[in-house]
Amino acid sequence: MTTPPFAPVTDADLAVLRAQLGRPARGVVGVASRCVCGNPTVVATVPRLPDGTPFPTFYYLTHPAATSAMSVLEADHIMKELSDQLAEDPEIAEAYARAHESYLRDRALFGEVAEIEGISAGGMPTRVKCLHALAAHSLAAGPGVNPIGDLALARSTWSASRCVCVEPGVAG
């Protein structure tokens, strides 16, 4: 197996993450997606945090504008619409199941944790539970891997191709 293609986290990244999250980032092993200005958008985290807590969310959305956009979609009940699509479209369901397996393979490269075995994120492979996690997976893996994450990103007001950070190197 090879590691997923993401950059190691730097001290500068950790400073931006601290500003984005309002707290120190925990268990970060790399930056899986960046804003066009270079700031982290998605980080990859170890499956067991340094304090011993199992952490299934391998791809974690950190960019404030992206997280806000996903929160707006959740508040607008888009998850129900996406859940209905998942239930009604066998192609989406099959692709979503493959996304779940891809997520588990990526995370397994950084350790196996019995408490979260078989659990990915965002409700995969059968539910739509957290658009933040699904969008993070889509941004990290690229278009076409996670259909629900792709649909959420397409429905959002945020775009990975447009920087809305305050200034390069500073969280927005």
Rank of each mutant, 00 (worst) to 15 (best):
A95E: 07
P47A: 04
G30Q: 01
G149E: 01
T126I: 06
P40A: 02
A141R: 08
T62G: 08
E94L: 00
L86C: 04
D13Q: 04
L131W: 10
V16C: 07
T41E: 13
P50A: 05
A108P: 06
P24K: 09
P168R: 15
A19P: 10
S71I: 00
L109C: 13
R107N: 07
G118P: 05
P125E: 00
N39V: 07
R34H: 03
C163P: 11
I116N: 08
Y103K: 05
F55S: 15
G122L: 06
P168K: 15
E91P: 00
T57R: 11
Y96Q: 10
S156Q: 11
A44E: 01
A7I: 00
H132W: 06
C165I: 11
A141M: 12
A135Q: 01
R23S: 08
L14H: 10
H77R: 14
L153R: 12
A95I: 00
D13L: 11
L61N: 03
P24I: 04
I92N: 03
P8K: 08
I119W: 07
P40R: 03
V46T: 12
A121H: 04
R34W: 02
G142A: 13
E94T: 00
R155T: 01
A114W: 09
C163A: 14
L17C: 08
G38W: 13
L104S: 05
D51N: 15
G149W: 05
E117G: 15
A135P: 04
E91V: 00
G144I: 04
L73G: 02
A65Y: 14
A69M: 07
R162W: 13
E167F: 12
